[in-house]
């Protein structure tokens, strides 16, 4: 059987390497990585792969839709893979945030291990993305609460614990989160100068 060629569209170098490793573990594939959105459709056409994997969140994915309109006999028509595969795989792929385009007419069985590997990898990315966003948010909130505490301590001459207790009580009274009250205080103080 001829080795399948796969193009991975991924701007982040580390992520791309992880995907390539997973695919190598899953089988003997010829893997190319494209990291730049510039001329994406034409570059893919030049490589003429059997499968294209791209992050569902990548806005450049729309460029691949052009490939679905094969205009010449040398062009390889592509179809989005998930519509031709089993329902379970479709859902798993969408859930994990990966979209795959394959050459029309390829047997789903040959693509399944590729997609399985990609899905596993993308799921991990998704978890990392969520964790990162959560961590960032928590950090920002912590900074905001610290600033608000400092303002209260100076303005009212109270200690840190009392300042935090005051924030927490106000938040409870207003049905808001402590971070929201802190942020309102910092904004208002900024406006008043």
């Amino acid at each position: 059987m001829v080795t399948l060629s796969i193009v991975v569209v991924e701007p982040d170098r580390d992520r791309a390497l992880l995907i390539v490793d997973s695919l190598r573990d899953a089988g003997d594939f010829d893997v190319h990585v494209i990291s730049e959105p510039t001329g994406l459709a034409r570059r893919i056409q030049a490589i003429s792969p059997d499968v294209v994997l791209i992050d569902l969140e990548n806005p450049s994915r729309d460029m691949l839709e052009e490939l679905a309109l094969a205009s010449g006999p040398m062009d390889r028509p592509v179809a989005m893979f998930v519509d031709k595969s089993g329902a379970g795989l479709t859902d798993a792929a969408i859930e994990a945030g990966v979209s795959a385009y394959v050459v029309d007419g390829m047997q789903p069985g040959r693509v399944k291990p590729i997609l399985d590997a990609a899905i596993a990898r993308f799921r991990m990315f998704q978890r990392m993305r969520t964790e990162l966003a959560e961590t960032k948010r928590a950090l920002e909130e912590r900074k905001m609460i610290d600033r608000a505490k400092g303002m209260l301590m100076r303005a009212r001459g109270i200690d840190e614990d009392a300042a935090y207790a005051l924030l927490r009580k106000t938040a409870m009274d207003q049905g808001k989160r402590v971070a929201e009250v802190a942020s309102a205080l910092v904004t208002a103080a900024g406006l008043l100068g």
Partner: peptide, 15 residues
């Protein structure tokens, strides 16, 4: 949504 194809697929697959 991040792209038109993604929104179309979200709709097609009932997301």
């Amino acid at each position: 949504g991040p792209s038109w194809s993604a929104v179309r697929d979200m709709l097609s697959f009932g997301r």
